[in-house]
Design a protein around this nucleic acid. Structure first.
Lengths: 345, 345
DNA sequence: CTGAAAGCGCTAACAA
DNA sequence: TTGTTAGCGCTTTCAG
């Protein structure tokens, strides 16, 4: 077993050049004779030398570290598909750019969450931060990050913050509008909407789109029942019972995400309804469960991995000073996935 | 907006003490008068000073960075619940110990995967590594890590490596044995088993347990049909058709994980079988889908988050030199979750 | 109890 | 085209 890890000086000594030259070779700098470059590379290979990223950073550069902030609360756990999709996309975009992802779970309800996040980033000297829901809607956090001059990008921020910081996401309002139009086209006139948590404003936009479509069709959104869940299967099952009982049962139920829609399906089965004949149910996201439940869920596909990847790419652009250019919100395309949970009335 | 970030010297100057004293306060060192400590802390607060983790590391200590290696291949994506559960558990165990998690996706089939991983860890100077399947079964990787003297711990390693490195996981063989016994108790005698990828040896152990139970019951495992999938819903649906057609259809199908079991349920429905009357299906893991499919899946619950957390804790123990003590494999408890997809024959 | 000095491994002027 | 010289911000001997 070798002694300590080889340093740049070891490489310099072995290849008989100065330390700076080795540094130049390592960073693909100019002004190095091919022959010398060769010699250095050989020494690197022989010594199994690896640059020390921390030392490199300390000497001036950037840390090449990006932080991904996500909620660590219990009630968001079932959304694992969403978060891991985001992460996978982000990870893939990091690799080619030479960045690394530092994960950080934060309790969204803690009072010192902003300070915690700032401390974390400042201490690790991350070059930038990716905010995921519900942190992408946290105005205080955005302000603090701005004040500290920390580059950041938001995943699916609500309308309020879209013009204030770089962001990526789908157009939830339009998505809500489209799926409602689809249901309207199927002949439905009695709706119910199962909303998510108020703090997730992108989910609120889905509801806004629904209202717009209803209004255009001459229906009154206020006359239709609504309820709120926390995006989980369980809450979908629980909250939809109230929505579905009563004399004037809706013929179509729109849920703010697939997990709740799945729960609604479950509850409807329990109530003895025959699906989709008695009730059409739709969701948003197109998560894996939507394909395996019965009946398979008609939903809006959200390109989660693409969103994660674009978030990283935008953040890197901001880091490189392109910020002035395109500071706005980037819309990634969604699409309606027609399966069998919604049918003509 | 301030100039550059405050350094330890700024704090020292403001509080009128030497740099060393500030360092002592920051690290809770001894030999500092309470009064002086107070003064330093105030300066830290006023300056909004944050230690620079990279500089701290460079000067001597550890990086307090742990790498979590996971597969980035396409065919493992559907297992997002598994990976994100592991990650969440790991993240939670990191926080109290002051460690941070660096995520790293690696293509498990690439030839230079070992080198890639080593380079990554060496360059970032991670203190240790958590290997998740299928990397936890990669003997070459283990050897390389050993050679480089890099601390590591494996999540659910196969029997082959369990005695060679620190590891955490459930007892897959016993789990396979138990669920088979359960089915046997229900009266089943004609079985089929849908295995996972050969490279995931912990999944292979589930099959081994199944064989043991069958053998003890006087049945010949070799007489029962088997097939292989890649852990996805799709492969479960595809592979189970062959298993289920033919004159002597099995009455019980055991799948190496829940996603495949869900696929099998789907295929069985398609074949017009009435479940669970015509066929009992069981899986492993107790992922969220297992609750929402029809019929709800009887399965083995695997405490994924706990495994992730224990992996980190063990790794930290190894880092602290407790390695000699408990170098072995730690078993976390599993349990049979009886739902409705398996029934008396 | 406290501080001065010596690095940790690297990059970036500045000379040569 | 190359090497010399300073630091980057921190921990750590080792003297006071």
């Amino acid at each position: 077993m070798k002694k300590a890890k080889p340093t740049i000086d070891d490489v310099a000594a072995l290849s008989g050049v100065g330390r700076t030259t080795v540094s130049r070779v390592l960073n693909n700098g100019p002004n190095v004779r091919p022959e010398v470059r060769m010699r250095v590379l050989e020494a690197v290979e022989k010594l199994q030398y690896k640059v020390n990223a921390q030392a490199r950073f300390l000497a001036g550069g950037r840390s090449q570290l990006l932080a991904l902030i996500h909620a660590s609360d219990l009630d968001s756990e079932p959304n694992s598909y969403y978060y891991s999709g985001l992460e996978l996309g982000a990870l893939r975009a990091c690799a080619p750019a030479g960045f690394q992802l530092l994960m950080h779970g934060v309790n969204q309800h803690s009072l010192d969450r902003v300070q915690k996040i700032i401390d974390f980033i400042a201490s690790r000297r991350c070059d930038g931060v990716i905010l995921t829901p519900p942190f992408s809607d946290d105005a205080d956090l955005h302000q603090a990050l701005l004040r500290q001059n920390i580059a950041h990008v938001a995943v699916s921020p609500g309308d309020g913050l879209r013009r204030q910081m770089a962001g990526v996401g789908m157009d939830d309002e339009v998505a809500g509008y489209e799926i409602t139009r689809y249901l309207l086209g199927l002949g439905h006139r009695r709706f119910a909407f199962l909303q998510g948590l108020e703090s997730h404003t992108s989910a609120e936009s889905r509801y806004a789109g629904y209202r717009r479509a209803l209004g255009e069709a001459g229906l009154s959104p206020d006359a239709m029942p609504t309820a709120r869940g926390n995006f989980t299967f369980r809450s979908g099952a629980d909250q939809s019972v109230d929505l579905l009982k009563g004399p004037q049962r809706p013929t179509a139920l729109i849920c703010a995400n697939d997990d709740m829609a799945t729960g609604a399906l479950f509850a409807a089965h329990r109530m003895g309804l025959s699906l989709p004949a008695d009730l059409s149910v739709v969701g948003f996201d197109d998560t894996p469960v939507s394909e395996v439940v019965w009946p398979p869920l008609t939903t809006i596909h959200q390109p989660i991995r693409q969103i994660g990847a674009r978030a990283v790419e935008k953040l890197i652009e901001v880091l490189n000073g392109v910020e002035s250019q395109e500071f706005g919100f980037e819309v990634v395309p969604h699409r309606l996935i027609v399966r069998e949970s919604a049918t003509q009335i």
